[in-house]
Amino acid sequence: MKKWYLIIDIEKCGNCNNCFLSCKDEHVDNDWPGYSAPQPNRGQKWINIHGKERGQYPFIDVAYLPVPCMHCANAPCIKAAKDGAIYKRPDGIIIIDPVKAKGQKNVINACPYGAIWWNEELGVPQKCAFCAHLLDDGWMKTRCVESCPTGALSVHCVEDAEMQEIIKAEKLEVYQPEHKTSPRVYYKNLHRFTRCFIGGSVAVRVDGKDECAEGATVTIFNAANKKVSQCVTDNYGDFKFDNLEENSGKYTFQIAYAGYDTKTIEVNLKKSLYAGTIYL
């Protein structure tokens, strides 16, 4: 049986919020019996976009992580709900039955991703239902995917085996795998949000003027003095080592540039770090 998956490419997400807004358009004031009760006008974020700035001025990047219901294969909310109020369809979509779930506020705490919201007025827990009411009507994609202008979001209805191939080929990951809920929402370039970088700029003095050191070789070593990576500075003398673990301790990097003494710098990595301009 084919199942629905959502793939989100962090690199392509610009925080335009079209996904969030189209979800509101689809659900605020609209009742889809059997699928979802109307979303309140304010306060709920069925696809919740988290932002992260990395680095320090002027060496930064920014990433956005849209978090909908993960439609987990092993969904803790199903277990937390009574009377089968939350169930998994054969196509993998997790539905909160708006009638049966009435009054079951406790299920919102069952979700480790904070993807279930409480509707105070109607007294029901609510969340992204993967636009199942539209898919059942013949739509080929969800509202968020349809309105995404960058292709950051895409839906795929595939056999599990096929999905495993996509995961491998596209290097997809799940967000916060430690929850062990087997989400059906996969991320690409997740490190832009979850991991950190070390960057810097290399400069030299030439004829009394500062000049960017292009082509310097920068090698980075971890606390165990094991080489982690190597790169060459660009025309601004800039280098960047990405995909490092936050709070991963001491790193040293060596800068080698023809005609200058090699320089070694030690840093203690907590979060993304710009080492500033390093003069050789």
Binding site: A203, K209, D210, E211, C212, E214, N235, G237, T277
Partner: peptide, 21 residues
């Protein structure tokens, strides 16, 4: 580029690198 540093505030070396590129 050095004169510019007191106005726009971009490091002169970066201005040169940009201009050359």
């Amino acid at each position: 580029p050095e004169w510019q540093e007191n106005e726009a505030g971009i490091p002169a070396k970066d201005v040169r690198a940009l201009a050359r590129e």
